[in-house]
């Protein structure tokens, strides 16, 4: 019963967080110089005051700010994310067309990063001070220190251009007409480079975190006690060290699952991956308010969800934290 009401309360809170985000972003974005009417008038190659006003009226930009906000919020509450004027399409349609691609990319990258991060981190901690540890540490450092887009371009150069093993852009071979399993394999082939590129950085983060955290826990008194009691080292690692050491890693992972959407901006741009990261960046530069707000809202909702899950997992892993 306690867990259920906990979840319900977190959900309500989550909704309020989202609402606050919408309002904050709404105001923030409008502080930026330029508006969509000016951009679109500019793109038309000809613009005058009349044309801009015509567009501003069409977009409702001539109304007072609080009224625009009110209209927008009213829409959001009825799950209407508005119309993207620049793309001439409903925001929700645009986002949900692109969301699966981003979820596939970030999901794969996340699983890859978390699995290998924790494994490598645990391995390094278990072999602390030995060459395995040094190797993993150096590897993590290098992955961590290399700019994402640079890795992306280098991997395209190597695997796509020189070796010709993997496709360098897009999500599937256009016009190839693959169906069924063939299509799935085709998407997977396209997925490898972007997912690895995006995942490497986060893998490094998790590796370092897991290692540091495990070393910390290994020194805790209860571990020493367990050791003194003569429990098998493997059992100690599994039962005590890993379980406790994963706490900060989980905290971080929950946060980063959402942040990856931001990191996906770069990956999606370089690999021409048709996801919402790219959609967001274009919307930003073109001041496509509704679309930008919509992307923020949806990706924020995903993060709220992840945070909720994190909190839940947290309570399971560390019983000392009360659910109240």
């Amino acid at each position: 019963m306690g867990k259920l009401s906990f979840i319900a309360r977190r959900l309500v809170k989550g909704v309020f967080v989202l609402l606050a985000i919408v309002i904050l972003n709404f105001l923030l974005i409008r502080l930026a110089p330029g508006d969509p009417a000016q951009v679109m008038a500019g793109e038309a190659g000809a613009a005058d005051q009349e044309f801009i006003q015509q567009l501003q009226e069409k977009f409702g930009l001539n109304q007072p700010l609080h009224e625009q906000l009110f209209i927008y919020l009213k829409g959001v509450l009825t799950l209407d994310l508005g119309w993207s004027y620049r793309q001439d399409e409903a925001v929700a349609t645009l986002i949900f067309e692109r969301l699966p691609a981003t979820l596939l990319l970030t999901g794969t990258a996340f699983c890859f990063a978390l699995t290998f991060g924790v494994l490598l981190g645990a391995l390094a901690a278990a072999r602390v001070g030995r060459w395995t540890d040094s190797l993993i540490t150096v590897l993590a450092l290098v992955c961590y220190a290399t700019p994402l887009f640079w890795v992306a371009l280098m991997s395209i150069l190597l695997f796509s251009v020189y070796l010709g093993w993997l496709p360098g852009f897009g999500m599937f071979s256009v016009g190839a007409g693959y169906t069924g399993l063939e299509f799935v394999l085709d998407v997977l082939r396209h997925l490898i480079l972007p997912a690895l590129t995006l995942g490497l950085f986060y893998m490094a983060v998790y590796t370092r975190m897991t290692r540091a955290s495990m070393l910390e826990v290994m020194e805790m008194d209860y571990v020493k006690t367990a050791r003194a009691k003569g429990l098998a080292p493997g059992r100690i690692t599994r039962m005590h060290v890993l379980r406790n050491a994963l706490l900060p890693v989980i905290t971080l992972a929950g946060i980063q699952a959402g942040q990856m959407v931001g990191g996906a901006v770069l990956t999606e741009t370089v690999f021409a991956w048709p996801g919402i990261g790219r959609l967001m960046f274009d919307a930003l530069l073109q001041r496509d308010y509704n679309l930008l707000l919509g992307v923020f809202l949806v990706s924020s909702a995903v993060v709220v969800l992840f945070n909720l899950v994190t909190d839940l997992v947290y309570t399971f892993v560390d019983p000392r934290i009360e659910v109240s």
């Binding site: 110089p33 330029g34 508006d35 000016q38 951009v39 613009a47 930003l284 530069l285």
Partner: peptide, 10 residues
């Protein structure tokens, strides 16, 4: 950026 450029020239 594109938005800012348009506005500053406008």
């Amino acid at each position: 950026d594109v938005g800012g450029w348009n506005q500053r020239l406008n």
